[in-house]
Design a protein around this nucleic acid. Structure first.
Lengths: 333, 333
DNA sequence: TTAAATTACTAATACGTATTAGTAATTCCT
DNA sequence: AGGAATTACTAATACGTATTAGTAATTTAA
C-alpha cells in the first residue's frame, strides 16, 4: 500500500480510503483514478492478515463436520454452505474430525486462532450433538443436528412431514396397506418418519398395524430382510415405504427374488434421493429428498446475519429452523 | 501475550520464546513453567493473523475444485487432502468454482490475499486443465488433472494399468471374448482404459475386435444400450468391462431384461467403486477403485514438501505422479 | 584473579492495514 | 469582507506477534 501511495503521489491513508471506498473521505475522482492506476500498475493485492488484524474480521467461516464423505449426498451441505459464503465474499475453513470429541475441540481452537468470523457445525446424519464449548466464542450455527437444550441456532430437515408426505403419496395412489422398512436405530430420522407414517394413516382413518413396520439395519441387506418379512405376512402390503434409498435398493432385490414387479405388483418409495441409486435403478425410484444443499445455504446465510447484525438477529431462545423434504417423483409408485 | 507476560513477570519476548520453544533462548524450566501457568490462567490463545503477518506463513492451504459433489466418491480427494493437512497442523481453505474460469481466478486471488502457504487444484474428473496464472505465486499441485505442458506437479490415476488389470481379471477367469462398454467422450480415462484393454488382450494373444467396444454416454442408460449392442452381436461376449459403475448398473438392467444371470451367464466388471452402487446391487459388483483418497493425501503431502523444502523438492520438469487403481473383488466375475 | 564466555533475560522494531485526529487550502454564507 | 464550513488530503497510531540486537549478572577458563 505504501508502494501504491508513492507511485500515485498520495499517502497510504488515501490509498486505504480509495480501496475501501470510505464515505466522508472526499476523494475527488481524479485522485481515485490515480490510485487505482497505481494499484493496477503494481499488481497490488491487499494482505488479508493485516486487514484482519486491524479490523478484527476475516471474512472467513469455520466449517466443522464429523465426516464429510460418508454419505455422498450430504456433501451437498458443504456445497450449499460454500456457495452462499462465496456469494457474500466469505471463504470456508474446513475441518472434518472423524467424530473424535477432542479433535473437535482442537479444530475449533485452530479456527479461533485464525479469527474466523463464525462457525458452522454440521453432521452428516441428523442427530443430537454436544459441540465443544469454545465454539460459542463466535457466532455459531448447527446444521443437521441440535443440542438437547436447543441453546444454539440450528437447521434440520422435517422428518415428520417427510414421512407423512411419503405415505400420503402412496395413499393417494389408492394403497391402504403400507409397509414401512425402518431403521432399527431410534435416530431422529427414524423416530420422526415413523411419526409421519402414523399421522398420514390416521388422517385417512387407517388403523396402525405394528406388523407393517419392520425394522432392520439401514443398508441394502436390511431392506431386503425387512421386505421379505413384510411380504411373508398373511396380509402383505401393496406398497413399501423404505427408511432410505439403500434399504429401497434391498427391497428391489427382494421383490425381484419374489417375482413381483414394481410398481405394478407393489409400490416402493424411498428417502434421501441418492441420485446414483435412485435415478439409475429400474424402475427409477420415487423418493423424498433431504434438503442438504438448502440447509447448508440457510446455515451460512443465518450465520452471516448473526455476524453482521447480532442484536437484530439473535433470538431467545435461539431459532430452530426446519426445512421440508421435497418429494421426487419417478416411477416406482 | 502482553497480559501473559505481565502475569508471569516477564517480557512479551520471553513469552514468545517459551511458546515457540525457540532454541538458543536459554529459558530455565522455572520461568517456562511460570509462563505456561499464566497462559493457562488467562486462557491465552495466539492470534494466527498477527503471527502470519509477522512470519509470513499461515499453515493454511487453498483447495480449489471445479465441483465438489458431482461425483460422490471424488469427495474422498478432499477428505484425503484434509486428513493429511490436519495431521501436519494445516487447515484447508475451500472454494469450488463450478467450473467458471473467471471465478477460479478470483478464488485464487482471495486465497492469496489470505496468504495461503500453497494451493491444491483438484478436478472431479481426470482431465487437462488451464489453471489461473496467479496460482503459481505460491507452491501448487494439481490433483486428478494436468496441464498440457506438464509445467505443474500433479497426481493422476493410472487409467491404463487400471483398464489392463480389469481385463486381466476377466482373462484369468477364462473369458476370451470381452466386451467393453466405453464412454463415447475421449476423456483421458476413456482413452487410457481402452489402451489398457488392448494391452491385456495383446498380452494374451487375443486379436482386438472393434465390434466388442461399444461407446455410449457414461450413465446407466448408456450402459444399457452398450450392453444390448454387445449382446446382439453374432458372437456375443462372455464378459463385459464397463467404463464406470453407473454404466455397469445399466448393464445389470440390460442383462436382467435378457434373462442372463451374473456372473454365471456373463461376467461384469466396473470402474470407480462407487460403494453405494457397487456394494449394494445384486450380485455385488467387482470393480476398479479410483485412488481419490490417496491422490488427496499425496497432493497435500507433496505440497507441504514444496512449502517446507522448496529446493530439495522442486524437480525439473515437475513431477507427474501416477497412482494405481486397486481391484475390488466382489461377486460379478 | 581477571578476561572471556555463557545465562537469562528485555527493548525496540517490523509485518500491512484501518482509523482517528488533525491541517492547510478552498468555497460558502451573510 | 470575514468567519464558518467544506474539501482534500496526511501523520500517527494500534492491531498481536516474531525477531534482532542488545545488556546485566553469573560462570568458566587461563
Amino acid at each position: 500500500m505504501n508502494d501504491v501511495a508513492r507511485l500515485a503521489g498520495v499517502s497510504q491513508t488515501t490509498v486505504s480510503f480509495v480501496l475501501n471506498d470510505v464515505e466522508g473521505a472526499n476523494i475527488p475522482p481524479e485522485t481515485k483514478d490515480r490510485v487505482l492506476a497505481a494499484v493496477k500498475e503494481l499488481d497490488y493485492r491487499p494482505n488479508a492478515l493485516a486487514r484482519g488484524l486491524r479490523s478484527s474480521q476475516t471474512h472467513t467461516i469455520g466449517f466443522v463436520t464429523d465426516r464429510i464423505a460418508i454419505t455422498p449426498y450430504a456433501v451437498r451441505t458443504l456445497e450449499g454452505a460454500q456457495d452462499l459464503a462465496w456469494a457474500n465474499g466469505y471463504l470456508l475453513l474446513l475441518v472434518n474430525t472423524g467424530g473424535d470429541q477432542r479433535l473437535k475441540q482442537i479444530a475449533v481452537d485452530m479456527m479461533l486462532e485464525r479469527q474466523v468470523d463464525g462457525i458452522i457445525y454440521a453432521t452428516m446424519y441428523h442427530r443430537p450433538v454436544k459441540p465443544p464449548a469454545n465454539m460459542l466464542e463466535v457466532p455459531a450455527v448447527l446444521i443437521n443436528c441440535y443440542t438437547d437444550d436447543h441453546s444454539i441456532a440450528s437447521v434440520v430437515p422435517d422428518e415428520v412431514l417427510g414421512g407423512r408426505t411419503a405415505v400420503e403419496t402412496l395413499l393417494q395412489k389408492g394403497h391402504r396397506r403400507i409397509g414401512f422398512a425402518l431403521d432399527s436405530n431410534p435416530v431422529p430420522a427414524a423416530v420422526g418418519r415413523l411419526v409421519g407414517y402414523k399421522q398420514a394413516l390416521a388422517a385417512s382413518n387407517i388403523p396402525f398395524d405394528p406388523n407393517l413396520v419392520q425394522t432392520a439395519e439401514s443398508i441394502a441387506s436390511g431392506g431386503y430382510q425387512a421386505t421379505m418379512a413384510l411380504m411373508s405376512l398373511p396380509d402383505p402390503p401393496t406398497a413399501i415405504f423404505c427408511y432410505n434409498d439403500r434399504m429401497a435398493l434391498g427391497a428391489y432385490n427382494a421383490l425381484r427374488d419374489l417375482n413381483l414387479a414394481i410398481p405394478d405388483d407393489i409400490a416402493v418409495i424411498g428417502f434421501d434421493n441418492q441420485e446414483l441409486i435412485a435415478a439409475d435403478i429400474a424402475p427409477p425410484l420415487t423418493t423424498m429428498a433431504l434438503p442438504h444443499y438448502e440447509m447448508g445455504q440457510w446455515g451460512v446465510q443465518y450465520l452471516l446475519q448473526l455476524i453482521e447484525n447480532p442484536e437484530q438477529t439473535q433470538q431467545n431462545p435461539p431459532i430452530q429452523h426446519i426445512l421440508p423434504c421435497p418429494l421426487i417423483e419417478r416411477a416406482s409408485v
